[in-house]
Structure formats: structure tokens, C-alpha cells
Design a protein around this nucleic acid. Structure first.
Lengths: 125, 125
DNA sequence: AGATCGTATCGACAGACGTCAATCTCTAAG
DNA sequence: CTTAGAGATTGACGTCTGTCGATACGATCT
């Protein structure tokens, strides 16, 4: 994991359901980067542990034991999730607190939506 | 890509948002398998091309050219998507038609949902 | 300043992944 | 039965990925 090209940063088109029209190569690359961040059991568990942790945030020391991985490995996964825009990083004193970015998950979820089941005016786009 | 262990088959808990409570190792593995299927630009494009194709289905011959990959590679990706439960395979005569499984995408999308914004009674669970 | 603790980075290594050319299987057509 | 075409499988290849131990960095405490 060296040289992460660039941060997708949610430039993934809002309201571009996968199933509406063929994805352009660029869109596909961006989305794949984000899904790739979710494509690992350890990272999914980290994400859910952080989200359901006290205050919606957790430091690395809270995470090493539950996922049963070494500290460097956990840091590595957190970096991938953060670079993908799924986590925020906040250093306070000796500790670094990570928190999920709800909008990022929602956006990704929206892409998978086949039928928009939101009622009322679509707030999106 | 040899020996795909077993088909996740949507045994992923319905209504188990990632952010509600820590994911069990087994759940995480199942979800990761599905996200892994989406974690490749070529597969995302195949998915969207199939979904937006005439009749909601497409044969391999319709897909090789748009994604600019060899026929074996396309077959390989289609197998991964099918094994993940995201596509169905239907052989008719000489051709094999693939179609997306809307429920699979929706289920995956639901997992990413942070706040259930569906109004009315939740149809899920 | 020195010691200590929480994280990040580095280097290495095994295993998984994406890709292709070659080949095989199955079906339809002559 | 032979031939031709669509798709899957095999084998090989380079690259990427997950993991760890060792180490560096930065903040706190004594």
C-alpha cells in the first residue's frame, strides 16, 4: 500500500444508480476504489465497531483487540478507509479518534439502489 | 480464482446496518465477499451494462467489446458476480444470458444505509 | 531531558487477483 | 457426423494486498 493515487472524495456522481446506464470508465474506477475499501472483513468490522462505539468514534487502541490484528495492520486498514473517505481522523492528545462519515456510506448505498423508494421530492440532485 | 468457497446467497442479515452494532466475523466475511465482487471497475461496468441493456439481460458477446477485455476475462468476472449472487445465469441455446439480481443490490445498499429514510412501515424485517 | 505510551511508517513475505492465450465443452447448423 | 460458434476452463504471468515485526514519530508524564 504505497502511493494512493488520489482521494475519491465522493466525486462519485450523486444519484447515478449502477443500473440506470452504463458506467463510464472513470466513474467505475472511482466507485471501485470505495467498494474496495469495504471489500475486506477486517475493515467492515472496524467500520461497524467504530460506528457503534461510544460517541460514534474510537481510537486505535479500542480496535486492536476486537479485530484480533496487530496494531500496524489496524492502522493500515484505518488509513485505507480514511483515504476512501469513509472515516475521519481526529488527533486529540496522544490518541487518534476515527469516526464514520455517514454521507459517504449513504452515497455508496444510493448507488446500489435499484428502485428509489424515497417518497416525496428526491433530495438528491 | 479457483475454488470459490461457498455462495453467500444473501444470508447476509437483512436490516443489519453496518453502523448499528459490531459485525460478527462471519457476517463480515459474507459481506466482504459481496463487496469484493463490486470492487473492480470492470465488474462494475459489466453490472451496469447488463442492467441497462435491452431486456435487462445480456450475453457475453454483448459485453466483451464495451469493456474492452478478452472473452475469458469477461467470463471470469461474470462468474465472480454470479457466485456473489449479484447476477443470474441463463443459458438459452448457444448463448448465455446474464441479468442483475435487484434484491441483492438493494440488500447490500441497505447495509450501508446509516439512517433508514424510508417512510411508512419498514418493509424490511 | 529522559522515559513512556499511542500511532504511523517501513520492509518483507505469502497469498490473492486481473489478465491473456490456448484449449475444452456444448449447442446449432450443414 | 462434421463443422462452426459461444462460452467456460486451464495455466501462466506480473501485480496488488493483508499481515507482521521492527522502528520512527509525537505527545504526555516524571
Amino acid at each position: 500500500m504505497t502511493a494512493i493515487p488520489d482521494i475519491p472524495e465522493l466525486e462519485v456522481a450523486c444519484c447515478a444508480p449502477l443500473v440506470r446506464e452504463p458506467l463510464a470508465p472513470d466513474e467505475a474506477r472511482g466507485l471501485a476504489t470505495m467498494f474496495k475499501a469495504l471489500a475486506d472483513p477486517a475493515r467492515l468490522r472496524l467500520l461497524s465497531i467504530i460506528a457503534s462505539h461510544q460517541g460514534g468514534e474510537a481510537c486505535v487502541c479500542d480496535l486492536t483487540e476486537p479485530v484480533d490484528l496487530s496494531q500496524p495492520t489496524v492502522s493500515h486498514h484505518l488509513k485505507i478507509l480514511t483515504d476512501a473517505g469513509l472515516l475521519t481522523r481526529d488527533k486529540r492528545g496522544k490518541w487518534v479518534y476515527y469516526a464514520v462519515v455517514p454521507q459517504a456510506l449513504d452515497t455508496l448505498g444510493e448507488v446500489l439502489r435499484v428502485e428509489h423508494q424515497g417518497t416525496g421530492p428526491t433530495s438528491c440532485c
